[in-house]
């Protein structure tokens, strides 16, 4: 996992230790809606009866989260930021097979 994505530091604390925030560039966010193909959905449906981890959905959410973060980082880059602080995540299940992932934070310039 990359912690510095394309020169942007992403943290979920309010400040970056050892650095000073010089400018606030506003809230940036990235979201994505993804779904697994129907075969994996049916597999999960059967696995669900027996209980346990639904690996297809763990993977799905991992992929979606990476994509949402990548979009958030792109948004921050467009604003000329070099860090995103106080990142939060929100999840909502849009329909049975798909879920929406939303990552947001504050784009800042740090020194």
């Amino acid at each position: 996992m990359q912690h510095i994505r394309d020169g942007i530091m992403v943290v979920n604390t309010e400040t970056i230790a050892g650095k000073v925030i010089t400018q606030n560039l506003g809230v940036v966010g990235g979201s994505t809606v993804r779904a697994k193909h129907i075969g994996k959905d049916i597999g999960a449906l059967f696995k669900n009866i027996g209980g346990g981890e639904l690996r297809a959905y763990t993977e799905l959410l991992e992929e979606s989260r990476n994509e949402a973060i990548a979009r958030m980082v792109a948004d921050a880059q467009a604003r000329g930021a070099n860090a995103i602080v106080n990142v939060r995540f929100a999840t909502s299940a849009v329909t049975a097979g798909a879920s929406e992932l939303f990552a947001y934070g504050t784009a800042v310039l740090v020194e």
């Binding site: 943290v11 230790a17 009866i49 209980g51 346990g52 981890e53 690996r55 959905y57 989260r65």
Partner: peptide, 15 residues
Amino acid sequence: DSGLVYASFVYSPSH
């Protein structure tokens, strides 16, 4: 140095 870490887990109770 600092950076984001995250992990997720989908768990279902059996019927």
